[in-house]
Structure formats: C-alpha cells, structure tokens
Computed example of a mutant assay.
Amino acid sequence: MNKNTPAVRKYTGLFSAICGGLLISGTVISQRAVAQQPTSQINPCPSIYYEEPHNNRVLVPQGCPPNALTQKLAAQGMLPPPTAPATPAPSQIPLGVGGEAFGSEPLAVNPCPRIFYEEPHNNQVLVPEGCPPNALTQQLLAQGMTPGQAVPARPPVTAIQPPLPAEQQPPSTKIALANGRVNIRLVNDTGAEVTYEVIGDTPARSLAGKSDTMLRDLTTPVTLTFFREDGGLLQVNLQPSEETQMMEVRLNATTDVMEDKNTVRIQEDGTVFLN
C-alpha cells in the first residue's frame, strides 16, 4: 500500500491524536493521584515524652496527655490553666514513634503558683516580681517598702531543696531522742544511684544502688533530702528503732507519682515529717 495516499495519511493522523490524548489523560490522572495522597504529619505528642527519664523531667506541650512531671506540677498548682483540650485531635494521636515535635512549645512553669496565696505562705513568703501581691506583699507595699528592701535576694536554686513547712501536714512518725541528736541509717534498695544531703551538715553525696550508709550524731532539727540520679520516683519507708535516737530511712523504687518523696525532716521533739 502506498503510504502517501490520502487515506493512509488520514488514518495515521487519527492514530497519533488518539495516542497523544491517552498520554495526556494518563499524566493528569497520575498527577491527581499524587495530589490526593495524604501528607505525613509530625506527631506533636511523641512517645519520648512518656519514657524515662523524660517522663519525670520534661513538660509536655499544650494539648498532649500529661506525663508524670506535668501531672505532679499541675497538682501543686505550678502550671497555668490549659488553653487547649486535654486530649489531642485525631490528627495528633501519637503514632508510636518518638521524635521531635516541631512547632510544639512545652508548657511553661507557672511563675505565680497558688501556694503563694495559701497559708502559711500567704503571710510569710513574698511573691516573685510580676505576680499579684499576697497578704505579706500588700503589707510591705502599704508601709512604703518594696519587697527588695524587705528581704535579701534569694540564694540560687540548687538541685536539692528544703521541704515545705512541717505544720502543713500530720507527722509520719516519731522517735526518741537523746540530747536532741539522732542517727539515720539510709538504705537504697533501688538499682539506681541516689544523691542525698543533710541540709547544713553535709554536702551532696552519692549512694549506690543496693547499698546503705550511716549518718551519725545529727543535731535536730534535721532535714535529709535525696533524689534518684536517673530521674525515677522514690517511695520512702520510715522505721524508727527501739534504740534511742536511731531511725532507718529505706528508699524503694515506685511508678506512682503520688508516692514520690524526697525529704525527711526530724524536729527537736522527735516528730518526723515526710515530703
């Protein structure tokens, strides 16, 4: 057949047009399919926030389920009121893979916790600058005194803090003293290293897991503080001895944030408080 005849050229052009249309349609369909594929979303509540040591050291972003540290600070009134729902939206449900949550800001610690406005702090502790005045701050302002003129600057915050005043809670136990002195046997039953300190008597020291130490001839009042180096929680058991001026403080691991304790105080009369 002669390829240059009008009929051949007609069918050749028609075939080319059909093939070109199929190619264009395929390209459009392919582009639409790609456009309709869901885009991956960054998890704003990664699982790393709920794993140790972050579970007890890092505040979760607004809108994420609270971890142990967030629950503890919220219970103490040290976090601002939430501005987002406690449960995340469906698109924010953790995917089971840890990682950075770009665009999510961690919760900020409330600089004006409600404890400043509760007794006895309301009449004994000055609020930080920028907070609403409590009763003590108002009294000083009424006398023409600024808080900075009334008290010296606070010492720098250290890793171990003294407890809150003992009169806020009932005593945990009581021991017999001799001349106002006490011996404490500190037992670390956890597998982690513990840092302890007798405020005003000893520097911060380390106590290895599954070991103990004896703190002798301490003059009351005594404040003993401790915390786990790995950020874990501590359950404390107090065991007064029948022997005069002797008490055992036994530390165990726990996962219950409400049982977590880090301070033992012994008063001049032998009354013991646990915080």
Rank of each mutant, 00 (worst) to 15 (best):
P147Y: 07
T244C: 01
P163L: 01
N237R: 14
P203R: 11
G209A: 06
P155D: 05
A204M: 13
G231A: 10
L207E: 07
V182G: 02
V198C: 06
P156E: 11
P170V: 07
A204H: 02
M214K: 10
T213H: 07
T202H: 05
G209S: 09
L207R: 05
S172Y: 00
T195K: 11
R216E: 13
E167I: 08
Q168W: 01
T223H: 03
T202I: 06
F227P: 00
D201R: 14
V236K: 07
P147W: 03
V151Y: 11
T190C: 07
P240C: 04
T190W: 08
V151K: 10
V187E: 12
L215G: 06
R205G: 00
S172P: 00
L233W: 01
V222M: 08
D201H: 09
V157R: 14
A153L: 13
A208Y: 03
K174R: 15
E229D: 14
L238N: 03
N188W: 05
R228W: 01
L215V: 05
E229K: 15
A208L: 10
V236T: 15
Q161A: 09
P240K: 01
L177N: 06
R228N: 11
I175V: 15
R228C: 01
L186Q: 03
N183Q: 11
Q149S: 07
L215T: 03
T158R: 13
R216H: 04
I199V: 09
G191C: 00
V198A: 08
E243R: 14
V182H: 04
S241N: 11
Y196P: 09
Q235E: 12
L177Y: 07
I175S: 14
T195Y: 02
A204I: 04
L207W: 05
L164I: 05
S211A: 14
A192G: 08
G231F: 09
